[in-house]
């Protein structure tokens, strides 16, 4: 069976719009595959091109070289089988929560009454029943993330792309959201590509963790299978001895890259 998502020998070079000789290679010769139903995290120091990988998988960006395949087929244009959870605010501020959740159904031309019923059901599933008429600015950061999650999941994508979706939340809300994500995920096991700079989050959620080197021209420097039992509770699993062991192992490999990335940013 072919991988749900496969990035093969991807290189992505950006050219400065003002000066064409200025180039920046974000990722170089990177390969990555997510099996159907697998939860894969990519961790790496800041500025290592993690989001670039996700935009490539989403079809928002075309690679300079290499190929992106979705269930065996080469990707052209937007990846219609994927849902994307963005790092920053992506809700349409002029739509209330319910209208935001059903936006994708509306774009697909679904009957409004049916869309509304589904939307309300999804709002309840993410714990926001009764908040449908609130506009994004009237919701807290955690609630907005839940709306965004419902907005993406209502379309039942086979692949879920997540770009540090919880990084802006406080620790408690974040752990709640992580547990909710795992619960929603375990219901129908979508393929997930999860980007984060938080190693603990990556280990707690994933089946597999990939570590990227510091940018520019970052590439994978290690891949670790996480053999922690499921179902997991993200706040409890952090205390298990096996978790600590895995964390130490990956951190040992990553530390050097993090310091390198930090040094580059300080220049």
């Amino acid at each position: 069976m072919s991988a749900a998502l496969e990035l093969a020998r991807i290189t992505c070079t950006f050219i400065s719009r003002h000066d064409r000789s200025q180039r920046y290679t974000a990722v170089e010769e990177t390969s990555l595959a997510v099996a159907p139903g697998e939860f894969v995290s990519v961790v790496g120091p800041t500025g290592c091109g993690k989001s670039t990988l996700l935009n490539l998988a989403a079809g928002l960006l075309a690679p300079s070289s290499g190929s992106v395949r979705v269930f065996g087929e080469p990707l052209r244009g937007i990846n219609g089988r994927a849902g994307y959870l963005f790092q920053s605010e992506a809700l349409m501020p002029w739509r209330n929560a319910l209208q935001n959740v059903i936006a994708g159904l509306e774009f697909r031309g679904l009957d409004p009454a049916a869309a509304k019923a589904q939307g309300e059901d999804w709002l309840r599933r993410v714990g926001l029943g009764g908040f449908g008429d609130r506009y994004p600015h009237q919701l807290s950061g955690g609630m907005r993330k839940r709306v965004a999650l419902a907005q993406t999941l209502i379309l039942n994508p086979q692949i879920l792309l997540m770009d540090e979706p919880f990084s802006a939340l406080d620790v408690q809300t974040r752990q709640l959201m992580e547990n909710e994500l795992l619960e929603l995920w375990s219901a129908d096991r979508k393929s997930v590509l999860f980007i984060t700079h938080d190693l603990e989050e990556a280990i707690a959620l994933s089946d597999r963790v990939m570590v990227l080197s510091a940018g520019p021209a970052s590439h994978p420097i290690g891949e670790y299978r996480i053999d922690l039992p499921r179902p997991r509770d993200v706040s409890e699993i952090r205390l298990s001895p096996r978790f600590v062991e895995i964390h130490a192992e990956i951190w040992h490999a990553m530390k050097h890259e993090v310091l390198k990335g930090y040094a580059q940013q300080r220049q």
Partner: peptide, 13 residues
Amino acid sequence: SPVVLANARMLGA
């Protein structure tokens, strides 16, 4: 917002 735009595109607009 480019993010709102990208999000709408991902939702199939």
